[in-house]
Structures are given as C-alpha cells and as structure tokens.
Write a protein that binds this DNA or RNA. Structure first.
Length: 188
DNA sequence: GGCACGATTGCT
DNA sequence: GCAATCGTGCCT
C-alpha cells in the first residue's frame, strides 16, 4: 500500500499563481503526536509581491510576513482580528515574497468542526503562530499529493477591498461546487 | 507612547 | 449588522 509523500520544496518554488491552483486537490496533513488530521484543499488565494496592496509582504522583509521573503515550502501563520489564525504556504524563490492562503478544506481524517474558512481550518487543525516559519514537512504539518481536480474556478480575493485595484485581481481559486468552499460566489 | 485597524467569525 | 480581541504598523 503506497504511502503518499510530502510535497517537495520544488512544488512551492514556482510562481505563486501556479502554486495556488496546484494546491487545490492536495491533502493537508496535521500531525499532533499520534493523532493525524487531514483534509483536501478546495479553496486558496494567491498573495505575491511587495506591490500588492493586499499582500502582507508590503510591510517588508522585517515585518510580520518576513517568512514570505524566505525560501519556499514553509508555513506562514499569522493572527488576524486578535483571535483567528490563517495558514499560508510560502512560495517563490528565496528573496521573492509570495504565499498561498488556505481558505477551504474538505474533511478526510480526524477533523472535528467546520473547515470552510481560513480561521476555522486553523482552529480545527490546531494551527497557530508557533508553526510560523516551520517547513511544510513532517513531523508537524505538510501537504501530500491528492486526486487531480476536474475544474478550477477563480474570482476576487475575499476581505481585501481596501486594496483598491489589487482587490479585483482574480487570485482566489476554488473547486466549483465544493461544499467546503468558504463562499461560492466569486463576488465580494 | 498611543492609536487605528485587519487575508474572520459568530452572535444579535 | 456588529462586537470580539491583540499584534503590527504608523504617527505623535
């Protein structure tokens, strides 16, 4: 019985838009001691470059998103609204900031609670800032290859209306029809 | 040192 | 529709 291998750094070391789409259908695995929690990625968003007003990298390599400036294939986890955490996979080559926000997860194994929405995913998988900067590899948190997706939909990113024209870029991707997508319409 | 605000969520 | 809640960023 073949065991799925964690996705290698090369998977993440590409254009962020490509990684955001390639992550759809992959399996996010959270290992907590002997307990394994896993789900299928059904919704992502791409954040790339210091120019993107919606991207945390705009605060520079010394800011809270410093790990976005480092090598690909590590976790970028931040606290939002003082109470929720969001999980990202860092992309692009060292020195080039980029990350993919995980927004929707289809429960597969060991999941309790909802996993539609970035904050709920982190709550269900017990992901917080202690994992920020950690390589997306065993023993704590990683992605594995999954069944290929049949279709990909795209639309505006959620909650970044303050970013002006950057908010209009169709950099949100999801598997159409999935029940675990945080919002089905591409609008907002 | 002070203050406004957010890649969200859940309750009214 | 709006409060919760706190680290970060920016201004004084």
């Amino acid at each position: 019985m073949p065991v799925a291998a964690p996705l290698a750094r090369e998977f993440y070391e590409r254009e962020t838009l490509a990684v955001a789409q390639a992550l759809l259908g992959t399996i996010l695995v959270r290992q907590i001691g002997a307990e394994r929690r896993a789900g299928r990625v059904v919704e992502t968003e791409a954040y790339v470059g210091a120019d993107d007003l919606a991207c945390h990298a705009r605060t520079g390599p010394g800011g809270r998103a410093s790990v976005m400036y480092g090598p690909a294939g590590v976790a970028y986890v931040y606290l939002i609204y003082g109470m929720h955490h969001c999980l990202n996979a860092v992309t692009e080559r060292d020195g080039h900031p980029g990350a993919v926000l995980i927004r929707g997860l289809e429960p597969i194994e060991g999941i309790v609670g909802r996993t539609d929405g970035p904050g709920r995913i982190c709550k269900a998988l017990e992901i917080d800032r202690r994992l920020n900067g950690l390589p997306l590899a065993p023993p704590e948190l990683w992605f594995e290859a999954g069944r290929p997706v049949e279709a990909v939909a795209s639309g505006r990113r959620i909650g970044v209306d303050y970013a002006g024209e950057w908010a209009e870029r169709p950099w949100r991707f999801w598997i159409p029809g999935s029940r675990w997508v945080s919002r089905e319409p591409s609008r907002r």
